[in-house]
């Protein structure tokens, strides 16, 4: 197991303008993909790119409000928490994001 660091390890992943508004990009990791989402208000969120339902790639879904609709079976997932919108139940991991200037950092 790797040592746990006290402060979050922020990793630079790109610029806000690299992510389309009401869209998403993919961050590839050696531990599976992460979806990086941008809302109409330019908020950025990061979720594991797997729907809690049948692992559909959320990054390929349609973004609206602070939600994304999974492309496989239309579950709606909250971008801030990774929770499925009721009545569906389930949760996918979310990752902290910080933006300095226009640069996006993620903590994994």
């Amino acid at each position: 197991m790797s040592a746990v660091k006290q402060e979050a390890n922020w990793i630079e992943v790109g610029q806000v303008e690299d992510v389309p508004r009401l869209g998403a990009r993919v961050i590839k990791t050696d531990d599976g993909n992460i979806g990086l989402f941008r809302t109409a208000e330019d908020e950025i969120f990061a979720l594991r790119d797997e729907c809690p339902h049948k692992k559909g790639p959320l990054s390929q879904g349609i973004v609206h409000g602070k939600k994304v609709t999974c492309p496989l079976h239309n579950w709606n997932i909250q971008l801030d928490s990774g929770e499925a919108v009721a009545p569906d139940e389930g949760c996918t991991a979310s990752f902290p994001i910080k933006i300095e200037g226009t640069t996006i950092y993620i903590a994994i």
Partner: peptide, 19 residues
């Protein structure tokens, strides 16, 4: 083009931006 490429590729502890 952005649709088909990852914004970044990360391995533990290091990152390569591709966008």
């Amino acid at each position: 083009k952005h649709e088909f490429e990852p914004i970044a590729t990360i391995t533990i502890g290091k990152t390569t931006a591709t966008a």
